[in-house]
Design a protein around this nucleic acid. Structure first.
Lengths: 225, 225
DNA sequence: TGGCGCCGTAGAGATCGCGTTAAGAGGGCT
DNA sequence: AGCCCTCTTAACGCGATCTCTACGGCGCCA
């Protein structure tokens, strides 16, 4: 769940935002003053901040500048000011986007998505899976056993990838066949036997007694770390 | 110098933009149609794209979508449409920002700066890669073997750059083709064979037994230091 | 205990993919 | 125009990979 911090002092607006954002799957916290906002960034470590420049206790721009002295968390600035120099000042102070009021909730949500998309950790899953015997780097498409790279053929890799992405879950023979060989393959289980044997031979410490590539007779296969 | 590609068909506007942007230190190229824009992204490899949605030959949104099938270059969209759903559609299609006309040049410049600032690799820039056999200076576009400069053709350099920027990671044949030759190239693997052979001949101590430009049969290539 | 289904293993043949070489086309420079 | 560099494209041989078959083992059930 993505944590979002909303710094704004208008209670009705905050309530409306909270409803919409929560519905979209964000975990929303809020602060009504600049000082409280700065504190909450430190305590809740949000993945994105929405900052209204019109705050009661301090200039919103100063809040932003202070944030930027120690964190690069994405900040979307809201403001009623349409003047160019205000936008330029906010953007150059480290804002990632600047939205002028009034705006539609849809647009703000889209801008939040666009901003989060740029963050490396935003939606990318952990690409490295490690077991006691070997290490799989999904992003680099590389497998190492005892620190040494192991070469897999394309089909071997595809089978491995499907199993690892469904780590711990049972993958049916049918599903495995269709994801690797294509939708028209449904009963060619002999392929699976051949390639699972290859994977075990290359990766399992004791191929005849597999501990990571488990056969569920009559059902399918399961990868466990 | 930051390379910027402007895709817009209104000549006066393009001229004005070019003057301002060049004055700000950008290296500006431009295209007046969507098709030309797509081609120029592939050939000039800009660090940021400014895309006007109102193009004569194709829908600007389609240009954006096509770009996003193979590159993550930041794109700022310009449009005369203020409607929310247009903004949402563009942002969700992969735009990094959406600016409605009319806008001030100062604001656009600030948004370009803000977008470039959060570009990945902003702080993890590593322009020099060294192996036991050769040395690659990505910034200076120079390769030396035993201290001696080696001449690479433009295409050779592009292939090398893509591989080195993905150091350690497997680069699929498709990705390599699209990043070097453009999005319409997907299956011309014979090019890769020829250029990888050239790189190995020029850089590897033993070209017939490559240790840095590794082939993963059926999958792609990998550069390892 | 015997049959049956499912799995693991080995291997053979056909196909695929890669490295290499070389020739022709196109473009820029002198 | 002539030359040179670069890119594109084709052809060949070899090794790797995929597909498919055969056989033996194991557990389950009557």
């Amino acid at each position: 769940m993505t944590r979002l911090l909303l710094i704004d002092d208008e209670a009705p607006f905050v309530r409306a935002m909270r409803v919409s954002l929560t519905a979209m799957g964000y975990e929303v916290t809020s602060a009504s003053t600049g000082a409280a906002g700065l504190a909450k960034v430190a305590t809740t470590v949000p993945e994105i901040v929405v900052l209204d420049l019109g705050l009661p206790d301090m200039d919103g721009l100063d809040v932003l500048k202070q944030l930027r002295t120690w964190t690069e968390v994405p900040v979307i600035v809201l403001s009623a000011r349409h003047r160019d120099d205000a936008k330029v000042a906010a953007l150059d102070a480290g804002a990632d986007d600047y939205v002028t009021k009034p705006f539609s909730m849809d647009e703000l949500l889209a801008r939040i998505r666009a901003t989060l998309r740029r963050r490396p950790g935003g939606a990318v899953e952990d690409p490295i899976v490690e077991t006691d015997a070997f290490r799989i780097d999904l992003a680099a498409k590389q497998v190492t056993v005892n620190g040494e790279a192991v070469r897999l053929t394309p089909t071997e890799w595809n089978v491995l990838e499907v199993l690892v992405r469904n780590q711990g879950k049972l993958v049916s023979q049918r599903q495995l066949l269709q994801e690797v060989w294509g939708p028209q393959y449904t009963t060619e289980t002999e392929y699976l036997r051949v390639y699972l044997a290859a994977l075990r031979r290359k990766l399992e410490p004791t191929p005849s007694q597999p501990r990571h590539f488990i056969t569920e007779p009559g059902m399918g296969y399961r990868f466990v770390a």
